[in-house]
Design a protein around this nucleic acid. Structure first.
Lengths: 237, 237
DNA sequence: TTTATTGAAAACGTATACAATCTGCGGATC
DNA sequence: GATCCGCAGATTGTATACGTTTTCAATAAA
């Protein structure tokens, strides 16, 4: 097998199958935007009808989502949106605090002009979503910002791990978030971009660490309620 | 949803589906023992016949293996054992060097008597496998040793990430390993157990770090050949 | 009122059928 | 001799059928 083949494999051909599965992409999108709250039941037939595919495709998508910890599968009981425990929530943020500061450092060292432009553009999109009160979209974009930094750090393996942890954070925030707005994100993210643009590795690392600690400390592990819209409502748009 | 339910979910009900899929467990086992070298084609019909299940089960198992980066899926071209690039190999070990020393530290702090007994027993099994010249088995057990430490550290999220990185390391070693034996493992692992038994966190962390650096430095990224046994031969026993 | 039972409907698990795509070889063409 | 079709066989992709399990409401008993 040639090296180009090998590199192509590594460039995430692995996920290609999932990424063009409408169930995977649609449900993931809805979870990241908190339109599908934790615990929501995901009946196979309902998803099959909504996306116009057979249950075969639905099951493949749900299995992929289960591997990302966004969905829980229980034998003979079907799928539901994952419901991370307080312990899992704490562990996910501990893992992020271990990995992301180093990624921010590497990003500051490796970022090119195009990377910084992309980050600024993304921050603008986040800002727009916030000002239009599209809080779900804002949350998803906020997560993607962290993934972008990990990708700029040019360590695909770790970037992939971070991407997964960030996705799970959306569910954790849905369950345990106390503050009404994510406005702190805007300042933190902008400060991070400036540090990266200056190639100030120490500052980027510190900013990322404190940003994550702040997020983590805003979680409260008491009860939370789930509303009851229909599955179709939550997937639409 | 009750808290016990939630905790049960987190206790990896997610992987339960995969773990009782004979294709997943069988092919994973064979890859970890290097009976299935990188690049080996995994035809669905062949696996279906060997395990006595339908292609439905085979496909589910292969998709799960692809998510673990042990198998590569290419649309309309089928599955083959993953062929990690030098870059991926480097990144996997970099990630391990970032995560595992901290896990060893936590394991030293948290290990109970039962944990230490299990580690010693496991080291004995590793030793036995080596002395019986079952190098594949020895390699798989050596990987499991690292996973055990991560589990003792009591951080399931990170333990799961490490488990995945360790699995991929078996493929990397198959491709890029230069030394004939893994005898260095035996000494390193025993020293680690003693440090953990003494609850010497600093020592455990250092030993793990140097162990991983040693493994990493024994990789050579030039050509390598793949033999050509039949799939059935490699899966048997 | 509460609890237990039970049976029908709904949902999941697996196998299989068929369509779409790829592979490899033989033959035609240049 | 090399290259380019083109078809047959093999392989993967998707839908569907059917058996099994679960769910839930209606009924009966305590």
């Amino acid at each position: 097998m040639s090296m180009t083949q090998q590199e192509a494999d590594f460039a995430s051909r692995i996920e290609a199958e999932s990424m063009q599965n409408p169930v995977y992409t649609g449900v993931e999108h809805a979870i990241l935007e908190q339109r599908l709250p934790p615990g929501t039941r995901l009946a196979e037939a309902e998803l099959a009808e909504f996306y116009g595919v057979s249950r075969t495709i639905v099951r493949a998508g749900l299995q992929a989502l289960a591997h990302s910890h966004l969905v829980t599968l229980r034998p003979n009981r079907g799928a539901s949106v994952a419901n991370p425990s307080p312990r899992e929530a704490r562990e996910v943020f501990e893992a992020r605090e271990l990995l992301e500061p180093r990624s921010a450092r590497e990003a500051a060292l490796h970022a090119g002009r195009a990377d910084i432009r992309a980050l600024r553009l993304h921050a603008q999109e986040e800002h727009d979503a916030m000002s239009r009160n599209e809080s779900g979209r804002a949350l998803r974009l906020s997560g993607r910002f962290h993934v972008m930094i990990a990708q700029i750090a040019n360590q695909r393996t770790i970037a992939e791990i971070i991407e997964n942890l960030v996705s799970r954070s959306s569910l954790i925030i849905a369950l345990y978030w106390t503050r009404s707005s994510t406005r702190c994100d805007e300042g933190c993210h902008n400060a991070l971009i400036e540090a990266i643009a200056r190639h100030d590795a120490d500052e980027a690392e510190d900013l990322m660490r404190s940003h994550l600690v702040e997020l983590h400390s805003a979680l409260r592990f008491d009860v939370s309620d789930t509303s009851n819209l229909t599955l179709k409502d939550m997937l639409s748009q």
